[in-house]
Write a protein that binds this DNA or RNA. Structure first.
Lengths: 194, 194
DNA sequence: ATTTTACTTGAACGATCGTTCAAGTGTGTG
DNA sequence: CACACACTTGAACGATCGTTCAAGTAAAAT
């Protein structure tokens, strides 16, 4: 039964990712999960409860991917690959270019407290993952040890947000690659002092 | 009568900015504009027609501000000020930190063709404004003349998107200022060659 | 003075929203 | 064999959605 639950959450993820929280109606959800309303409410409490699980699973998945970047021998090279696979994908998966968390932030006012909390905590958690990558890159000498870790983590997360918004509108994949190169260049460059 | 129309569009802008297209119900709109449904439909055709006007007015306003940055004697210094005023504002105007266009892009699938077109054309138009600023900054020698104008314009627009997402979640204004400094530093830095 | 025009009102439309619930199904436990 | 339990179904709930429309008002055009 647990497998069926994860599978259902995965299907819901695709829907929320494409249409957002508000844009995904219970009838869309019923169709996507092939479940009747009673079953959904018995399992997930309500729409927001399902959304919370979706966000948590999304964050956990993202965390794993960022962690394996940090665990690489050359984290910065892995980071470039991570960016590429996240931002350049076939047309039918284009919706994935947008970050589910960032998309949710734009409609945060319309989501209840439970969902809101999951989204914000997810952002913090992924921020930590970015910080881990930077720390590891300093260890491997890919980054100068003067790099301000916390600030660079915020910055990197930002860059990812900007890149995803760019990639959503972009038809030319090579432009995205160039943009990724610029990010990685600026990451190794100088940082403003306090 | 024209004044009343602009005033109404302005009030609708605040609503759409805060709640998004989908999140703003016709009853919210009726209340915000202090107009009855019949009047709204007589004037604006429908919800999407009003949204289109909102987007167009927003873009025109943004264009003016970016143009005056480009017209400055020191466009890069003006750009920094523009970023600051756009991203750092009192709490009751916090909703403005998000870009209305970017927010709309996240729900583009749910907006009709008319509104979608207005949003996408707005993005292109503002992109041109960013390009103008960069060209002007090259003229004033604030930027190297090797700076790739079109690419840097895309990049700058991206940075703005990322910054706005950052600023929305940020409580510490000085962190935002530091982030702006980093953007302006990277703008003057080296660009990846083709 | 009369018609036209632009705009206004507010009740009401059908559709869709998130949610509830009585009733049923199948599996595991005592 | 009976009972509990987790899960299922689908009709139906009241609320809200975007929109329509007949009727009214005020000012401009004829």
């Amino acid at each position: 039964m647990k497998y069926a639950q994860e599978d259902a959450v995965e299907k819901a993820t695709i829907l929320f990712w494409k249409k957002g929280f508000q844009g995904s109606g219970m009838r869309d959800i019923q169709q996507a999960l092939d479940m009747r309303p009673g079953s959904i409410y018995a399992r997930f409490q309500n729409k927001e409860g399902l959304f919370k699980l979706v966000v948590e699973q999304y964050v956990a998945h993202s965390k794993d991917k960022l962690q394996s970047v940090a665990d690489s021998d050359t984290p910065l090279l892995s980071l470039r690959e991570f960016f590429k696979t996240a931002l350049i994908n076939p047309d039918e998966l284009r919706y994935m270019r947008q970050c589910l968390l960032v998309k949710s932030i734009t409609e945060l006012e319309l989501i209840g407290d439970v969902g809101k909390k999951a989204v914000l905590e997810g952002m913090v958690l992924l921020n930590n993952c970015f910080a881990n990558i930077i720390e590891k890159a300093i260890e491997t000498k890919e980054l100068q040890d003067t790099t301000p870790v916390a600030f660079a983590a915020d910055w990197l997360q930002n860059q990812f947000v900007g890149l995803r918004a760019f990639a959503i509108l972009q038809t030319d994949d090579s432009a995205i690659e160039k943009m990724i190169d610029k990010v990685l260049y600026d990451l190794t460059a100088q940082w403003p002092s306090d």
